[in-house]
Amino acid sequence: MKTVGNSRILGILACVFCLPLVVSFEEVVIPAELKSAVAKVAVNATSCSVTCGLGFKLEEMCEITPSGERRNCTWQRSDCLTRWICGLLHFTVPVGQPFQFSCLSSDMVGFGNQSYSYVWTFAQGLITTNNVLFKPFINPSSVIRFSTSRESDAGTYRCDVQKLKTFKVVKRIYFGVRVLRYDLLDLNFKKFLTWEQRLAANEEDIDMENSTHEEVQEQQHFQQGELFYEYLVGVGSGVVGGVLVSVALCCLQKTLRK
Results as ranks from 00 to 15, higher is better:
G110I: 10
G236M: 06
V43D: 04
Y174G: 01
L126I: 02
F99T: 03
I173G: 00
N210K: 08
K258Y: 11
C15N: 09
L244M: 08
S152C: 03
R71Y: 05
A45W: 12
W84Y: 10
S106T: 15
R198Y: 06
E59S: 06
L81N: 03
V41H: 10
S142L: 02
I9K: 15
P98W: 13
E196A: 10
Y174T: 00
W120T: 03
C103S: 01
E151M: 13
M208G: 10
F17V: 15
V177F: 00
V216R: 14
F17P: 07
L54V: 14
E209F: 06
V93A: 05
F167A: 15
E214R: 10
N131E: 11
E151Y: 04
T92A: 07
S67L: 08
D205K: 09
F91K: 02
A154F: 02
C251S: 07
M208F: 09
Q162G: 02
I173K: 13
Q219G: 12
L19E: 13
T255E: 12
Q223G: 01
E59A: 04
A42G: 09
F137K: 02
L199E: 14
G238H: 04
V161G: 04
L58I: 15
L180I: 12
T65S: 15
L81W: 01
V179T: 01
D107I: 05
V119R: 08
V245T: 06
K171V: 00
A32H: 10
L126N: 03
L133K: 11
V239T: 10
F99R: 01
P20A: 07
L232W: 03
L89I: 06
D160G: 01
N113R: 09
Q217R: 13
R257A: 05
L180T: 10
V95T: 15
K57R: 15
S149E: 02
S49R: 02
